[in-house]
C-alpha cells in the first residue's frame, strides 16, 4: 500500500474542502455586510416625514413621498402593460405553438432579453417615445419597465403551463371543449399560482430598476401624477441624492435604498412561498 499517495489525496481533499468552506463564508460575509449597513444607515433616517413630505431642495429636510408614489405608478403601469402581452405570448409557446419554429426562436430571444442590459432598453424607449413626443414622461418610463416585465413573465408562464399535465387538457378536449376553453378553464386555472409568482418576480425586478428610467421618466422634484410629464421614482431619486454633496439628501438616499430592498425582498419571499405551495 502506498501510504504517501493516500496521505497526499487526503491532504489535497482537506485543502480544497477548506477552501470551499472559506470562500463560501467569505462570499456570504460581504452579502451580509451590505444588508447590515443598509439596515443601520437606512433605519437612522427613517421617520414619518419620509412618507408624508416631498423630496427637499438641497440643504433642507424632507421626505420621499412624491418619489414613492411615482415609483408605485410607474411600476403598476409597467406591469399592467407588460403582463397581458407576456401571458399571451407564453400561452402561445406552451399551448398552440408548442412544437412550432416560432416558439423556439421566441424562447431563445426571450432568454436573451431576460438578461439584456436594462440601460439599452432605456435608450430604445427614448428613441421610440421620448424623442418623437419631444419630452420626458411617466408613460415612457412605464413602457420601459413593461419591456423588462415581458421576458420574466413569458418565461414563467411558459414553464408553468408546460407543467400542467396533458391528461387534463385531453380530458377537457374529449368533453368537446374548444382549445381556448381548455386553456382558459383548465390550463390557466391549474397554472394560476405559478403565473402569479412570475408576475411578482417581475414586479420585484422592475421596482429597483434605475437605468431604464434615467432618460424616459427622468425625475421630478415636485408632486406629479401626470403621465405626460417627467415623473419621480425612488431609484432615480436615490441615484441623484446619493451622488450629491448634501448630507440630508444622502440620508434620504439610504432610507430610500432600504425601502426598495424591503419591497423587493418581501415580493421575492411571497413569490417563493406561493410557488412552494404550488400543486402542479
Amino acid at each position: 500500500m502506498d501510504r504517501g499517495l493516500y496521505r497526499r489525496r487526503i491532504l489535497r481533499n482537506r485543502f480544497h474542502m477548506t477552501m470551499a468552506v472559506a470562500t463560501a463564508v467569505f462570499g456570504l460575509t460581504w452579502l451580509v455586510l451590505i444588508l447590515a449597513m443598509l439596515l443601520i444607515k437606512g433605519i437612522a433616517g427613517l421617520n414619518l416625514a419620509v412618507f408624508t413630505e416631498m423630496t427637499p431642495p438641497p440643504g433642507s429636510s424632507g421626505g420621499l413621498l412624491n418619489a414613492i408614489v411615482g415609483s408605485l405608478i410607474l411600476t403598476t403601469l409597467g406591469v399592467l402593460i407588460g403582463t397581458p402581452i407576456a401571458i399571451l405570448a407564453g400561452t402561445y409557446m406552451a399551448e398552440y405553438g408548442r412544437h412550432s419554429k416560432l416558439t423556439d426562436v421566441v424562447r431563445f430571444i426571450n432568454d436573451i432579453l431576460l438578461s439584456a442590459p436594462s440601460i439599452v432598453i432605456g435608450l430604445f424607449v427614448y428613441g421610440i417615445m421620448v424623442r418623437p413626443m419631444g419630452y420626458f414622461s411617466g408613460i415612457a418610463g412605464s413602457v420601459a419597465l413593461a419591456i423588462l416585465v415581458v421576458p420574466v413573465v413569458v418565461r414563467t408562464t411558459e414553464d408553468m403551463l408546460l407543467l400542467v399535465p396533458s391528461q387534463m387538457r385531453e380530458a377537457a378536449a374529449a368533453l368537446g371543449a374548444p382549445r381556448w376553453h381548455v386553456i382558459r378553464y383548465v390550463s390557466y386555472r391549474a397554472a394560476k399560482t405559478g403565473i402569479i409568482t412570475g408576475i411578482l418576480l417581475a414586479i420585484a425586478r422592475i421596482s429597483g430598476e434605475t437605468a431604464p428610467l434615467l432618460f424616459t421618466a427622468l425625475n421630478n422634484q415636485f408632486w406629479s401624477t401626470s403621465l405626460l410629464a417627467p415623473m419621480p421614482s425612488l431609484p432615480v431619486v436615490i441615484f441623484q441624492f446619493a451622488l450629491s454633496p448634501y448630507e440630508d439628501w444622502q440620508r434620504l438616499a439610504w432610507t430610500g435604498a432600504l425601502l426598495i430592498t424591503i419591497a423587493v425582498l418581501t415580493l421575492s419571499i411571497v413569490a417563493r412561498l406561493l410557488s412552494s405551495k404550488r400543486t402542479v
Binding site: 451590505i34 420585484a204 441615484f239 446619493a242 444622502q250 439610504w254 435604498a257 430592498t261
Partner: peptide, 16 residues
C-alpha cells in the same frame, strides 16, 4: 434572494 437585490443598492453601498 440576494441575486434579486437591485443594483443601485450595491452602488450606494460601494460609494459610501
Amino acid at each position: 434572494l440576494l441575486a434579486g437585490i437591485p443594483s443601485i443598492i450595491y452602488g450606494i453601498w460601494g460609494l459610501f
